[in-house]
C-alpha cells in the first residue's frame, strides 16, 4: 500500500531548543495513526508542522508524493487538502453552525451557497446535530462544538484529517460522543492522524501508534506491540505513569 502522507527526517527548533529531532513517520491511505507521548514531547508541534502552521527547520513533508514543505508552494491550496481540528475547537463565534461549516467549501472550493448548505445539513443530520444547524457556537456544549469543528474540517473533503488533542477540554460523556464521530469517519475510510491522551481510544482505533519522547520517535507499531510489548525504557516509564494515574 502506498503512503498517502509521509514525514521525512523532520526537524523543528524554536531558537536553540530542538523540539522535533529527525522525526520520520509514514501514513498509509485510510489508516489511523495515533501519536502518544507526555506533554512537551512535541506532539502538538508535529501536528502544527503537518498542516504547515509552523515552518520546518529541516526535512520534508509529502502529501500524495508531492513535497508540500518545498519553498514557494501554494500554502492555501495545500491546507485546503488537509483538515485540522484543534483542542480549543476554534469555531467562529459570529457565524452559525451551518455558516461555520460552509465557509471553506464556498470560499476555497467554489461551491454555491445552496450546494454547501445542503452538504452541511446532510453532515449535521448524519452525526446527530441537525437541530443545532442554525444555532451559534456559544449555545452548544463543548462536545457539540468539537463535533461541529470536526464536521467543518471534513466538509472540505480533505485527503487527510489531523486531530490535535480534540478531547482534552471535555468531560468523559462529551469525550465519548466526539470519539464515536471519529470512529465513524475512520470506518468511512478517512485517513487520520490523532494526537491524544485517550489510551483506550488509541488502542481501539489505531492501525499504528507512534510514541514520541523529547522530540524523537522512540517506538512505533500496532497497539498490541506498543501496549503489551514495549521495547524502550522511555515507553515503559510512560505506560507505567499512565497506569499509576489510572489512565490505562
Amino acid at each position: 500500500m502506498s503512503n498517502l502522507f509521509e514525514v521525512k527526517e523532520l526537524r523543528k527548533s524554536f531558537g536553540a531548543n530542538l523540539v522535533l529531532d529527525n522525526v520520520s513517520i509514514e501514513f498509509p491511505a485510510q489508516s489511523a495513526t495515533v501519536i502518544i507521548g507526555a506533554s512537551g514531547s512535541g506532539k502538538s508541534t508535529l501536528m502544527r508542522c503537518m498542516n504547515l502552521l509552523e515552518e520546518l527547520n529541516d526535512g520534508q513533508i509529502l502529501l500524495d508524493s508531492q513535497d508540500i514543505s518545498a519553498y514557494g508552494i501554494d500554502l492555501d491550496s495545500v491546507r485546503g487538502k488537509i483538515g485540522s481540528v484543534f483542542q480549543a475547537f476554534n469555531l467562529f463565534p459570529h457565524l452559525s453552525v451551518v455558516q461555520n461549516i460552509t465557509l471553506a467549501p464556498r470560499l476555497v472550493h467554489g461551491k454555491s451557497k445552496d450546494e454547501a448548505d445542503l452538504l452541511a445539513r446532510t453532515l449535521l443530520t448524519r452525526f446527530g446535530l441537525a437541530e443545532k444547524a442554525d444555532e451559534y457556537p456559544n449555545l452548544l456544549s463543548g462536545g457539540q462544538q468539537q463535533r461541529v469543528a470536526i464536521i467543518r474540517a471534513v466538509a472540505t473533503n480533505p485527503m487527510l484529517l489531523l486531530l490535535d488533542e480534540v478531547t482534552s477540554a471535555l468531560d468523559p460523556v462529551l469525550i465519548a460522543e466526539v470519539l464515536t464521530l471519529i470512529s465513524e469517519l475512520k470506518n468511512e475510510g478517512m485517513t487520520m492522524v490523532i494526537a491524544t491522551h485517550e489510551m483506550g481510544f488509541a488502542k481501539k482505533i489505531a492501525d499504528n501508534i507512534v510514541f514520541l519522547h523529547k522530540g524523537r520517535v522512540h517506538e512505533s507499531g500496532t497497539p498490541e506491540k506498543i501496549f503489551n510489548a514495549p521495547q524502550t525504557q522511555e515507553l515503559k516509564e510512560f505506560l507505567g505513569a499512565l497506569h499509576q494515574a489510572g489512565r490505562l
Partner: peptide
C-alpha cells in the same frame, strides 16, 4: 490569533 489560524487551516487566504 487562534481564529486566524483556524481559518488558514481551512484553506482561506489572508484576505478571505
Amino acid at each position: 490569533p487562534t481564529q486566524r489560524q483556524a481559518a488558514r487551516a481551512l484553506g482561506l487566504s489572508q484576505g478571505q
